Simulated assay, not measured.
Amino acid sequence: MREISTSVTFEINPGETVPMRIARGTRLTVHGSPVWATRSNDIEDYWLAPGDRLNLRERERLWLSAEGDKPARVVFTILPRRDERAIRWLSTRIERLALRFRAGWRTV
């Protein structure tokens, strides 16, 4: 079973089923052929056409299968955690405030 812990792209051949475990919150994007997805703790299966996206939960298990006659390319993008997003937002605001503060002193 593959573990997805970083952003990665790979191909799934037609008729192949790939089991995986998601280590962190991740966004799955499909390219090429459609993909059939089954998720742990979810009674629904997902039919994903090229261009479709699916947000995946941390620690969930996932089984992907390529449908059609050509390989599917799947892109896993790690999503920043809430604390990482909050720190990034706060640091950006502090930098902007500091730039305004410095610009204000130059005009005095």
Rank of each mutant, 00 (worst) to 15 (best):
A49K: 04
A49M: 10
A49Q: 09
P50S: 09
P50M: 07
P50A: 10
G51L: 12
G51V: 11
D52A: 10
D52M: 07
D52I: 03
D52P: 02
R53Y: 10
R53A: 12
R53V: 13
R53H: 13
L54V: 00
L54K: 01
L54G: 03
L54Y: 00
L56W: 03
L56F: 00
L56R: 00
L56M: 08
R57Y: 06
R57C: 05
E58F: 05
R59N: 07
R59K: 14
E60L: 01
E60N: 04
E60P: 02
R61L: 07
L62G: 02
L62D: 00
L62R: 00
W63D: 06
W63T: 07
W63M: 09
L64I: 08
L64T: 08
L64S: 08
S65K: 11
A66Y: 02
E67G: 14
E67P: 12
E67S: 14
E67C: 15
G68Q: 04
D69R: 12
D69F: 12
K70T: 12
K70R: 13
P71V: 06
P71N: 03
A72E: 01
A72H: 03
A72W: 05
R73L: 15
R73W: 13
R73S: 15
R73Y: 15
V74Y: 06
V74S: 03
V74L: 04
V74P: 01
V74C: 01
V75Q: 11
V75L: 15
F76G: 06
F76R: 03
F76D: 03
I78V: 11
I78N: 05
I78K: 05
L79F: 01
L79K: 01
L79G: 01
P80C: 02
P80L: 05
R81S: 13
R82P: 04
R82W: 12
D83K: 09
D83Y: 11
D83E: 13
E84R: 05
E84S: 07
E84Y: 02
E84V: 03
R85M: 11
R85P: 01
R85V: 08
A86G: 10
I87R: 13
I87T: 09
I87Y: 10
I87S: 08
I87H: 10
I87Q: 12
R88I: 12
R88K: 15
R88M: 12
R88L: 13
W89A: 08
L90T: 13
L90Y: 14
L90G: 07
